[in-house]
Design a protein around this nucleic acid. Structure first.
Length: 189
DNA sequence: AAAGAGATGGTCT
DNA sequence: GACCATCTCTTTT
């Protein structure tokens, strides 16, 4: 049972903390001149504007504008001046909600991923938010794209993995505030 | 096996 | 000028 882009659009119109576990099992796809990389999303976190840990908490700014663009868009930011992190925006336009893609299991383009992350063992290539962006070639240049438009270079697809796994839940990672909110979900191995 | 520190730059106060 | 939704390498137990 797969969902088309209209189904996904409706799904992503919901609040980040209810949508996040539904994003597990969806496939992230990124095209580039060098080839295509695809991965099954296996770990996510939710952020909303009511949440002090969220970039959207203090309202729209130049950096977080795409977080307010409405469900289905891509929000990419630079963290620690070093790594990029990719988010699936959720909720209505203007709301400032997003689901951070923390980890992915590669399903296509393993050779290209190896080129982009040389010397890193397969199992460790996409098991963190910065690693996912490095492996997929995602940076601020694709911030704000519509992930549900089949014509864009970075996309979100349902390849039929719905409900075939157990989901774990716990606190988010790396935060100074908001540690008490258990808004991280992952697919149990 | 776990803990610590440095890298590095855009964004906001 | 401080703060980061991180990663990797080095040092210590």
């Amino acid at each position: 049972m797969t969902r088309d882009s209209a189904d996904l659009r409706a799904l992503l119109a919901g609040d980040a903390d209810t949508v996040a576990p539904e994003v597990l099992g969806l496939t992230l796809v990124a095209d580039s001149p060098d080839g295509t990389v695809a991965g099954r999303i296996v770990e996510v976190e939710a952020y909303t504007s009511a949440d002090p840990a969220s970039h959207s908490h203090r309202g729209p700014t130049g950096r977080n504008a795409s977080m307010f663009a409405g469900g289905g868009h891509l929000y990419v930011y630079l963290i620690y001046g070093v790594h990029h992190c990719a988010n699936v925006v959720t909720g209505p336009s203007g709301d400032g909600q997003a689901v951070l893609i923390r980890a992915v299991e590669p399903v296509a383009g393993a050779g290209l991923v190896a080129t982009r992350r040389p010397g890193v063992p397969l199992a460790r290539r996409t098991d963190g938010p910065g690693k996912v962006c490095a492996a997929f070639g995602i940076d601020r240049s694709v911030d704000g794209l519509d992930l549900l438009d089949p014509g864009t270079s970075v996309r979100l697809e349902d390849r039929g993995d719905r409900g075939r796994f157990a989901v774990g839940q716990g606190p988010r990672v790396g935060l100074r505030v908001g540690r008490e909110t258990p808004w991280r979900w992952w697919i149990e191995r």
